[in-house]
Amino acid sequence: MTKQNGYRLLGFVILCLGAVIMVLPLLWMLTTALKTNFEAQQAPPVLLPHHWQWQNFKTAWQAAPFTRYLWNSLLVAFLVTISQLVISTLAAYAFARLQFYGKRVFFILCLTTLLIPGEMLLIPNFVTITQLHWFDTYRGLVLPPLANFFSVLLLKQAFESIPTAIYQAARLDGAGDLRCFLSVGLPLVRPTLVTVGLLQIIASWNAFMWPLVATNSEQYRTLPVGLQSFTAEAGTQYQLLMAASTLAMIPLILVYLSGQRYLIQGLSRTGLKG
Results as ranks from 00 to 15, higher is better:
residue 3 K to Q: 13
residue 4 Q to G: 09
residue 6 G to V: 06
residue 11 G to Y: 02
residue 12 F to C: 11
residue 15 L to C: 10
residue 20 V to L: 15
residue 21 I to T: 12
residue 24 L to V: 13
residue 26 L to I: 14
residue 29 M to Y: 08
residue 29 M to S: 12
residue 30 L to W: 03
residue 31 T to S: 14
residue 33 A to N: 07
residue 33 A to S: 15
residue 35 K to S: 11
residue 35 K to I: 07
residue 36 T to R: 05
residue 40 A to C: 08
residue 41 Q to F: 09
residue 42 Q to S: 13
residue 43 A to W: 14
residue 46 V to E: 11
residue 47 L to E: 00
residue 50 H to F: 03
residue 51 H to K: 14
residue 54 W to R: 04
residue 55 Q to W: 04
residue 56 N to E: 05
residue 58 K to S: 12
residue 61 W to H: 07
residue 62 Q to M: 11
residue 62 Q to S: 13
residue 63 A to P: 03
residue 63 A to R: 06
residue 64 A to R: 13
residue 66 F to H: 08
residue 71 W to I: 15
residue 73 S to L: 09
residue 74 L to C: 12
residue 80 V to S: 06
residue 86 V to Q: 02
residue 88 S to V: 03
residue 90 L to A: 12
residue 91 A to L: 12
residue 91 A to Y: 06
residue 93 Y to V: 02
residue 95 F to I: 05
residue 97 R to E: 10
residue 97 R to K: 14
residue 98 L to T: 06
residue 98 L to G: 07
residue 98 L to R: 12
residue 100 F to T: 04
residue 101 Y to I: 13
residue 102 G to K: 11
residue 105 V to Q: 15
residue 108 I to D: 11
residue 109 L to R: 08
residue 114 L to H: 05
residue 116 I to P: 02
residue 116 I to K: 08
residue 117 P to K: 09
residue 118 G to K: 05
residue 118 G to W: 06
residue 119 E to S: 13
residue 124 P to W: 08
residue 125 N to T: 04
residue 126 F to R: 05
residue 128 T to H: 11
residue 128 T to F: 13
residue 129 I to E: 09
residue 140 G to Q: 02
residue 141 L to R: 10
residue 141 L to W: 07
residue 144 P to R: 08
residue 146 L to N: 01
residue 148 N to W: 12
residue 153 L to P: 03
residue 155 L to F: 09
residue 159 F to Y: 15
residue 160 E to M: 14
residue 162 I to V: 15
residue 164 T to F: 11
residue 165 A to M: 13
residue 170 A to H: 08
residue 172 L to N: 10
residue 175 A to H: 05
residue 179 R to G: 05
residue 180 C to G: 13
residue 181 F to H: 05
residue 184 V to L: 01
residue 185 G to M: 03
residue 191 P to R: 07
residue 195 T to D: 01
residue 198 L to H: 01
residue 200 Q to G: 01
residue 200 Q to W: 00
residue 201 I to N: 01
residue 204 S to I: 01
residue 209 M to V: 15
residue 210 W to K: 02
residue 211 P to R: 08
residue 212 L to P: 04
residue 213 V to F: 06
residue 215 T to K: 10
residue 222 T to P: 09
residue 222 T to H: 09
residue 225 V to C: 01
residue 230 F to Y: 12
residue 242 M to I: 02
residue 243 A to Y: 04
residue 244 A to F: 00
residue 244 A to S: 08
residue 249 M to F: 14
residue 249 M to E: 06
residue 250 I to H: 02
residue 254 L to P: 05
residue 257 L to Y: 05
residue 257 L to K: 02
residue 264 I to E: 09
residue 264 I to V: 14
residue 272 L to E: 10
residue 273 K to M: 15
residue 274 G to E: 10
